[in-house]
Simulated scan of single mutants.
Amino acid sequence: MLTNLTHRQLDAFRAVIETGQVTAAATALNTTQPSVSRMISDLERSVGFMLFERRGRQLVPTTEALALYEEVERSFVGLAEISRVAADIRDFRTGSLMIAGMPALALKFLPDVIAAFIRMEPGVSVSLRTRSSQAVLQHVSSQQFDLGFATLDADHPAVTRRPLYTAPMRAVLPLGHPLAEKTHLEPGDFHDQPFIALGAEIATRSETDVFFAARKARPRVVAEAQLSASICELVAAGAGLGIVEPVTAANFAAAGRVLSRPLHPEQPFQYDLLLPALREPSRLATRFLNLVERQFVELLGAQAL
């Protein structure tokens, strides 16, 4: 528990939250601007995390500051309880994450990361929404979600989009398929083979069509599906071959459901990280992203070689 908090520090903190400026807070408290700045700095040292980000003349509270402010507002809890909450926020014993993810990551990859995360941080709650990439973009643009995982070719003014991981698309084959003897598959290997394609509305479908057209290969499309997982299920059932993004291919191959082979020439696939543009990632979100990056390397690092 923190023991060096003072009422004056919390008064200054509350005033800056409500006015957005040190000058206005100083006026409200009938004190000087340097005094308020010093009390905020002292409070940040006491609680162990940053409380405000400066944007022009405005001070924007961090996610952690807003969590602390909720407790400060509940004045009946007393200074000792506020100190305890601040210590919990600092030490990751409380907090929450709102995450939206495309199905390719939200069906298994992200749940695996979340399970590891809550083992590390048992006081934290995580909410995961599985949505299309466009819907993930809209969720994050609302500023209500902390992290989004998608594949996009367009930006949104309220969202910061960053490349997260790029790896080649993979061919998936039924167990025991004759083509499994090959180290990689070329367009001609798919010619006249039963093939499960991505739906025509999926952007990656056009890239796969170009992959085949470049060598005048014509697979027999026996089924279409919107999700890579659905394609892998059809491949596992022996319906034909498929080409899917690398995470789903790796998960199904690791489970012994399908065989996975690289393509030549390669088809790069990029996973994007989406962040709300109006605030910086919280310390919890940053900690979670470290696990995400590690999971990508563990799952695809060897495969991408």
Rank of each mutant, 00 (worst) to 15 (best):
1 M>T: 08
4 N>Q: 12
12 A>W: 02
13 F>V: 10
15 A>Q: 02
15 A>S: 10
21 Q>E: 14
22 V>N: 03
28 A>W: 07
30 N>G: 15
33 Q>G: 15
34 P>M: 03
35 S>H: 14
35 S>I: 11
36 V>T: 10
37 S>P: 12
39 M>Q: 13
39 M>W: 06
42 D>P: 14
46 S>G: 08
55 R>N: 11
58 Q>W: 13
59 L>K: 01
60 V>I: 15
66 L>D: 06
68 L>Q: 09
70 E>H: 13
71 E>T: 14
73 E>R: 12
73 E>Y: 01
77 V>C: 06
77 V>G: 07
78 G>E: 03
78 G>L: 01
81 E>M: 10
89 I>A: 00
89 I>D: 02
92 F>N: 15
93 R>G: 04
94 T>I: 07
99 I>K: 02
113 V>Q: 04
114 I>M: 05
114 I>N: 12
116 A>L: 07
117 F>G: 13
123 G>V: 02
125 S>I: 11
138 Q>T: 15
138 Q>I: 15
142 S>F: 01
146 D>C: 06
147 L>I: 11
148 G>S: 13
151 T>C: 10
153 D>M: 07
160 T>I: 13
163 P>C: 00
163 P>L: 00
164 L>D: 14
165 Y>C: 11
165 Y>W: 07
171 A>M: 06
173 L>H: 02
175 L>R: 08
180 A>E: 05
183 T>F: 02
183 T>D: 14
188 G>V: 04
190 F>V: 00
191 H>S: 09
195 F>K: 04
195 F>E: 00
199 G>D: 11
201 E>S: 03
204 T>Q: 13
210 V>L: 15
211 F>I: 02
217 A>Q: 04
218 R>Y: 00
218 R>S: 04
218 R>I: 03
218 R>N: 11
219 P>E: 01
221 V>R: 00
222 V>L: 02
223 A>G: 01
225 A>E: 14
226 Q>S: 12
228 S>K: 08
228 S>L: 02
229 A>R: 14
230 S>C: 05
231 I>M: 05
232 C>R: 13
237 A>K: 12
239 A>Q: 11
241 L>C: 09
242 G>T: 00
244 V>R: 03
246 P>I: 03
252 F>R: 01
254 A>G: 12
255 A>G: 10
257 R>W: 06
258 V>N: 09
259 L>M: 12
262 P>C: 10
263 L>A: 10
266 E>W: 05
272 D>R: 01
279 R>P: 07
283 R>S: 09
284 L>T: 10
289 L>D: 15
290 N>K: 15
293 E>I: 00
293 E>R: 15
293 E>P: 11
296 F>L: 01
298 E>N: 08
301 G>C: 08
